[in-house]
């Protein structure tokens, strides 16, 4: 076959698949979001943004992302650096660390529920140690801080590995000679990390952060399992519009708002971590 045409033929199935199952539903959702039955309107958006729970759920989502993502980034960098220094057993450690990735987010939420709930492991431990005389209901409206902490912990536990694998691959791409040069020219281990590893890792950091931040705005099952309605987030509100209130126009508007936020943050991350022309490895 003609070498000029062949590449396009080869990507055709994927393109068709994405158009059918991604682009088409997206257009439908967009149409739903911008209409209430009689033509173009912003009513759906006015309705969801005006609802009293919207600022809370937006704030919760942003707070959760702000608490979880930096911790995950730091942890993933630390773990990736450690893994990269290992001579033996590197793969085994990586596999163990990535186990949480194989668990669905709802299952992860339930695991942490088993720890924090009234008859959970934490309560058994605390009463066994004599710290509390009867089980405490940590995940109740009286302890909003604990609810937030439990959700954040579950999210960190569940999704740090996705950043880890990207960063491990990225660090592996940095030639050893740069570190040796930096060492000879007087850079301490910390300086080598901040002056060599971090800047040369920018492309991987971009990918890892974009992926993780988008996932953070889509957080849902873990929150539902641990916080229920105590901790509304954007995604749980979308779910409520669609399945509790049966208002698909409002749900579609919420979905588009989440998408807009995700795109916004993606652009910020790409811009902040951009690599100047000619400055790639």
């Amino acid at each position: 076959m003609n070498a000029r045409v062949l590449p396009y033929v080869l990507i055709l199935p994927v393109t068709a698949f994405l158009c059918l199952f991604f682009l088409y539903p997206f257009v439908l959702v967009a149409k739903q979001a911008f209409s209430t039955g009689d033509g173009f309107t912003l009513d759906n958006f006015r309705q969801v943004v005006g609802y009293w729970k919207f600022p809370i759920s937006l704030q919760n989502t942003l707070l959760l992302a702000a608490a979880v993502v930096p911790v995950q980034l730091a942890l993933a960098l630390l773990m990736a650096t450690m893994v990269n220094k290992m001579q033996r057993g590197r793969d085994l450690v990586l596999y163990v660390w990535t186990i949480p990735l194989g668990i669905s987010d709802l299952a992860a939420g339930i695991i942490w529920l088993a720890i924090f709930e009234q008859s959970g492991f934490l309560n058994s431990m605390l009463s066994g140690l004599g710290v509390v005389d009867r089980p405490v209901n940590f995940l109740s409206y009286q302890h909003p801080g604990v609810v937030f902490l439990a959700i954040a912990l579950a999210e960190i536990w569940r999704a740090t590995a996705i950043m880890l694998v990207i960063l491990v691959a990225g660090i592996g791409l940095i030639p050893k000679e740069y570190y040796e040069a930096a060492e000879v020219f007087g850079a301490s281990p910390w300086k080598r990390f901040t002056r060599i590893t971090l800047p040369l890792l920018r492309p991987s950091l971009q990918t890892a952060l974009v992926l993780r931040v988008i996932l953070a705005f889509e957080v849902f099952a873990v929150v539902l399992a641990l916080g229920g309605t105590l901790f509304p987030v954007l995604m749980s509100e979308t779910y409520a519009y669609q399945f509790d209130l049966l208002d698909s126009g409002a749900a579609a508007a919420m979905a588009l708002i989440i998408l807009a936020i995700s795109i916004g943050f993606t652009l910020i991350i790409l811009r902040a971590l951009r690599v100047p022309k000619g400055a790639t490895i």
């Binding site: 000679e177 740069y178 040796e180 040069a181 930096a182």
Partner: peptide
């Protein structure tokens, strides 16, 4: 160094 190790960034 043999491959120069000129920092790309």
């Amino acid at each position: 160094f043999q491959n120069y190790a000129v920092f790309p960034h």
